[in-house]
Amino acid sequence: MSEYSDKELLLLFKDIERRNYAFNLIVRKYQQKLYWHIRKIVIKHEDADDILQNTFIKVWKGLEGFREDSKLYTWLYRIATNESLTFLKQQKTKYLLPIIDYENHLKETLESDEYFNGDEIQRKLQKAILDLPEKQRIVFNLKYFDEMKYDEMSKILKTSVGALKASYHHAVKKIENYFKED
């Protein structure tokens, strides 16, 4: 199957008779990228699965009104990021946990997660990332794991490139300190 460009997919989606097919192609094209992005924020596979489903349901409902001011890829990442942050907020209020406790809960999940294949250093890196503030964590993940450019990240997170660079720099410094202390 030759991969369609985003423009071709959007054009295909506008044709009511081929809408389902076009949406299926969009899901197939972006499911993995979005899943890993979400998974690194919420850690647990089941939560990442729920959020990914909600993300694509929102995409299905909103794609008709998508005005192409931004790239489809940027728009999808923005929805996935917002869904993940909303999920974290809901979890914190649901269990009435202060932020630090919920991050500890995520670290414990990391210890017992059957779908974590990394070695001890990678586990340590994930724990250090979990110590970062939410937004900083997302910036670090997008830059370090997804190797995303700052100007693309800027469109997703609606933050200036300068602020993102500073955020990444602080994140690396904090992770370095975590490794030194531990």
């Binding site: 389902n20 299926n24 899901v27 197939r28 499911q31 993995q32 899943y35 890993w36 998974r39 690194k40 596979h45 699965d49 990914l52 489903q53 694509f56 349901i57 299905w60 997660d113 779908y115 974590f116 294949n117 990394g118 070695d119 250093i121 990678q122 586990r123 890196l125 994930q126 370090y144 794991f145 690396v172 992770i175």
Partner: peptide
């Protein structure tokens, strides 16, 4: 950090067949 990434960029995994089944799951929903 770069060295660490070189070994295995993604330490997480998913259940078998997850990405193959996901589009069907979304269509059903």
């Amino acid at each position: 950090l770069e060295e660490l990434k070189g070994n295995n960029n993604n330490p997480f995994s998913v259940p078998k067949g997850y990405f193959e089944d996901f589009p069907t799951k979304i269509q059903e929903r």
